[in-house]
Deep mutational scan, measured.
Amino acid sequence: NQASVVANQLIPISTALTLVMMRSEVVTPVGIPAEDIPRLVSMTVNRAVPLGTTLMPDMVKGYA
Results as ranks from 00 to 15, higher is better:
1 N>P: 15
2 Q>C: 12
2 Q>M: 14
2 Q>A: 13
2 Q>D: 15
3 A>K: 08
3 A>G: 13
3 A>H: 12
3 A>T: 13
4 S>D: 00
4 S>Q: 01
4 S>L: 02
4 S>P: 02
4 S>R: 02
5 V>A: 12
5 V>D: 03
5 V>N: 02
5 V>F: 03
6 V>G: 00
6 V>M: 04
6 V>E: 02
6 V>S: 01
6 V>A: 02
7 A>I: 04
7 A>C: 04
7 A>V: 07
7 A>M: 04
8 N>M: 06
8 N>R: 10
8 N>W: 04
9 Q>H: 12
9 Q>R: 14
10 L>Q: 14
10 L>Y: 15
10 L>P: 12
10 L>S: 12
10 L>M: 10
10 L>D: 15
11 I>F: 03
11 I>D: 01
11 I>M: 03
11 I>T: 01
11 I>Y: 00
12 P>A: 10
12 P>H: 08
12 P>M: 07
12 P>L: 07
13 I>G: 15
13 I>L: 10
13 I>V: 12
14 S>P: 02
14 S>W: 14
15 T>I: 07
15 T>Q: 10
15 T>R: 07
15 T>H: 07
15 T>E: 07
16 A>V: 12
16 A>D: 05
16 A>F: 08
16 A>R: 12
16 A>Q: 09
16 A>C: 08
17 L>V: 03
17 L>N: 00
17 L>H: 00
17 L>F: 03
17 L>S: 00
17 L>M: 07
17 L>I: 08
18 T>H: 04
18 T>R: 09
18 T>M: 06
18 T>D: 05
18 T>L: 07
18 T>V: 06
18 T>P: 00
19 L>C: 07
19 L>W: 13
19 L>V: 07
20 V>H: 14
21 M>S: 04
21 M>T: 02
22 M>F: 05
22 M>W: 03
22 M>Q: 00
22 M>K: 00
22 M>V: 06
23 R>F: 04
23 R>W: 03
23 R>T: 06
24 S>T: 13
24 S>W: 09
24 S>A: 14
24 S>F: 05
24 S>Y: 06
24 S>I: 08
25 E>Y: 09
25 E>I: 06
26 V>Y: 11
26 V>W: 09
26 V>R: 05
26 V>K: 07
26 V>E: 15
27 V>W: 03
27 V>Y: 02
28 T>M: 10
28 T>Q: 11
29 P>Q: 05
29 P>N: 04
29 P>Y: 04
29 P>H: 05
30 V>W: 13
30 V>G: 08
30 V>L: 14
31 G>W: 03
31 G>V: 02
31 G>I: 02
31 G>D: 00
32 I>L: 05
32 I>P: 00
32 I>D: 00
32 I>S: 01
33 P>L: 11
33 P>A: 14
33 P>F: 11
33 P>K: 10
34 A>Y: 07
34 A>P: 06
34 A>R: 05
35 E>S: 10
35 E>Y: 08
36 D>Y: 12
36 D>P: 00
37 I>L: 13
37 I>P: 00
38 P>M: 13
38 P>C: 15
39 R>Q: 11
39 R>F: 12
39 R>N: 08
40 L>W: 03
40 L>S: 00
40 L>H: 00
40 L>D: 00
41 V>Q: 06
42 S>M: 14
42 S>P: 00
42 S>I: 03
42 S>D: 11
43 M>H: 07
43 M>Y: 14
43 M>G: 02
43 M>T: 04
43 M>I: 03
44 T>D: 04
44 T>L: 14
44 T>E: 08
44 T>N: 08
44 T>S: 12
45 V>C: 06
45 V>M: 07
45 V>K: 00
46 N>W: 07
46 N>R: 10
46 N>A: 06
47 R>Y: 08
47 R>L: 06
47 R>G: 05
47 R>M: 11
48 A>H: 14
48 A>F: 11
48 A>D: 15
48 A>K: 10
48 A>L: 14
48 A>E: 13
48 A>Y: 15
49 V>P: 02
49 V>G: 01
49 V>N: 02
50 P>E: 13
50 P>L: 10
50 P>M: 09
50 P>V: 06
50 P>D: 15
51 L>F: 13
51 L>I: 15
51 L>V: 13
51 L>E: 15
51 L>M: 15
51 L>A: 15
52 G>S: 06
52 G>F: 04
52 G>N: 14
52 G>E: 03
53 T>P: 00
53 T>G: 11
53 T>I: 10
53 T>L: 10
53 T>Y: 13
54 T>L: 04
54 T>W: 03
54 T>E: 02
54 T>K: 04
54 T>N: 02
54 T>R: 03
55 L>Q: 00
55 L>V: 09
55 L>H: 02
55 L>M: 13
56 M>Y: 09
56 M>V: 08
57 P>M: 07
57 P>C: 07
57 P>T: 06
57 P>L: 04
58 D>E: 12
58 D>C: 13
58 D>I: 09
59 M>A: 11
59 M>G: 02
60 V>F: 05
60 V>A: 02
61 K>M: 10
61 K>A: 13
61 K>V: 15
61 K>Y: 11
62 G>T: 05
62 G>N: 10
62 G>M: 07
63 Y>T: 03
63 Y>I: 04
63 Y>V: 04
64 A>R: 10
64 A>P: 11
64 A>Y: 05
64 A>Q: 14
64 A>K: 12
64 A>C: 15
64 A>T: 15
64 A>I: 14
64 A>L: 12
